[in-house]
Amino acid sequence: MMPEEINARTDTGRHNNGGISRMVRECRPYIWGAKLCRAYGLQGRSITVAIPYLWMLLLFMAPFLIVLKVSFSEIRIAIPPYAPLFQFIDNSYIQITLQLKNYAMLFKDALYVNSYLSSLKIASISTIITLAVGYPIAYAMARAPREWRLTLLMLVILPFWTSFLIRVYAWIAILKPEGFLNIVLIWAGIIDKPLIILHTDWAVYIGIVYSYLPFMILPLYANLEKMDFSLLEAASDLGCPPGKTFWKITFPLSMPGIIAGCFLVFIPAVGEFVIPDLLGGSSTLMIGKTLWTEFFNNRDWPLSSAVAVVLLLMLVVPIVWFQRFQARRGAVDVV
């Protein structure tokens, strides 16, 4: 299809025609690329599918296989500090040694199971708080006048312009006993002794909720903004009180946004290391910190790899479930 044809066709739509013709102009190299591919017998569809698969293969499967390989290895004092898995013997056959004791170790010492459970607990509670804080914000943004929305969206994204590490450090200055929060609270006469928040689990919750809030707001906003608010008018016309309307209509309709937001917060929060390390206390148990100790203090790459593999398996279950949910919803939408 010639670019001019596309242009002509979209023109009939009357909407955004300047934008689309510009897009077409910018896409011209890609269209040429597509032509080139077709000449070599490659279908456009297979290319579009191949790119994400290549991405997965390079950036997820390859590192994962390396970690999996190391997790079946044995610690030794060398560069790298683990024994090779495959050994050529007499140039005629390969000997493969799979060391399973790293996985057995994870269940022998309660430390690992406790760390996993504690991480799941901290991530779950943080996700619920993030949802409770993020939902009203996203809702207000979606109901705000159209000309404000872009600005509001910018305000949500703005913190990303500062390094994550610096933002977490800033919380140390806010939460410490002689920090900003305590100074204000004491000055206001609300408390007379500084609150000990830093280096407790409270600080970890605050850090996670703060850091991951945009990941909750953005999918919720995207969902709520598309919602047909005439449904709410209809409900109100039929005599449904506002509270009930929210729980009967808005909330169920925003379920996909809620689930997407919760996953975006929950999954990275489980493996979080920086926040518990900087804000948490020495009794804050999280799997990210346990993994760090195994890797750096014990120099046990195989065991820390086993910890990482089990963590991944734990997270794959909800991810697969989410995929299924999305696929089902997609099917319903088409129907």
Binding site: I75, I77, L111, S282, S283, L285, T293, N297, N298, R299
Partner: peptide
Amino acid sequence: DAESQRVLTRIWTRVKSGQ
């Protein structure tokens, strides 16, 4: 060595975290 290091780190984790 790897074994004594593990014992040492584990004790130290218990001392720090109480678990």
